[in-house]
Simulated assay, not measured.
Amino acid sequence: MELRQLQYFVHVARMQHVTKAAEELHVAQSAVSRQIHRLEEELGVRLFMQRGRNVQLTPVGQLFLRRAEEILHDLDRAVNEIHEFLDPEVGEIRLGFPHSLGTHLIPKVIASFRRKHPNVKFRFRQGMYPSLIRDVIEAEVDLAFISPMPDKNDRVEGEVILTESLCAILPKEHPLAGEEYIDLGQLKDDTFVLFSQGYSLRPIVWEACRTAGFLPKIGFEGEETDTIRGFVAAGMGVSILPEMALSLQSSFMPAVVKIREPNVTRTIALIRRSGEKPSTVVKLFHDYLLNYFRNEYQPN
């Protein structure tokens, strides 16, 4: 069995398409098909079955995929460990985070880290709450920022690194737009612009409204803070966003009003796979982050 066969197999399994996998690998489709066929012959099983123009893993193919991914992951770690042994300041960190952190927090902390460690490379992956946890568990990323910290999941571990307040955002022509503070209950008759299902900010806003004595009337849904902010600025409703998502200013901004009651906050955690010793460069970045948020981070 060859390493190339495992690599081709994993690419085809992930993309469910031989031609697309070949294009991503920059090899001929026939080469991919030939190596998959040889792998199946050696194992004595069928790993894929045809589904129209796509392919789908057989049950034994799904079992083999998990092991193949582990083998390739361990090989990547071994190569990285050798490079980091030769030079701990050279390596790659795979970092996951939700969209709401991508406009301000992540660029700020990465820029700070790279001023001290300019040769470290990063590979980023954005996603929703469930997909970020899955990416950590399946070793697609080394570390992930997530909100909130997962409960009762023994496959990830981590710590809360930041707690931030959420603010109400209103169209500038809204009657309460000029206030410094409001009670959330004052918005009970307004239409809300909320994050779509699956985004961690949605249940936070929903629970805050419930605590204030009402359930929000949803007019529009979006998947990024920029979208939510833009809809509100356009007069399509009101919403609640984290302070850091409101730090960037433009000519097309909603009014930002602090919430007096109830106190609406979110926690941000940094998670990793449980029980796994991180590579040198990942540990370097992890320890840097803990120190950064304890001693250096300023919200604005």
Results as ranks from 00 to 15, higher is better:
E2V: 05
L3V: 12
R4K: 13
L6E: 03
Y8W: 05
F9C: 05
V10G: 05
V12P: 01
A13I: 06
A13T: 03
K20W: 03
A21W: 04
I36Y: 01
H37K: 15
E40R: 10
E41Q: 15
E42D: 12
G44M: 07
V45K: 14
M49V: 15
Q50G: 12
V55D: 03
Q56G: 09
V60R: 14
V60E: 13
V60L: 08
I71E: 13
L72Y: 09
H73D: 11
N80A: 15
D87L: 11
E89Q: 14
G91Q: 04
E92Y: 05
I93D: 02
L95R: 01
K108W: 01
V109D: 00
I110S: 02
R114A: 09
R115K: 14
K116I: 03
V120T: 13
R125D: 01
S131P: 04
A139T: 09
A144I: 02
F145E: 01
I146D: 02
I146K: 07
P150Y: 05
D154C: 03
I161E: 08
S165R: 15
L166P: 00
E173W: 09
E179G: 03
L184Q: 04
L184Y: 10
S196Y: 09
S200K: 01
W206L: 08
E207N: 15
G219V: 02
G222S: 10
E223W: 04
A234R: 14
G235E: 05
M236N: 10
L241P: 06
L248I: 10
A255V: 07
V257W: 00
R272P: 06
R272G: 00
R272D: 07
S274K: 15
P278S: 08
V281I: 12
V282T: 10
L284M: 15
D287Q: 12
D287W: 02
P299Q: 09
P299G: 08
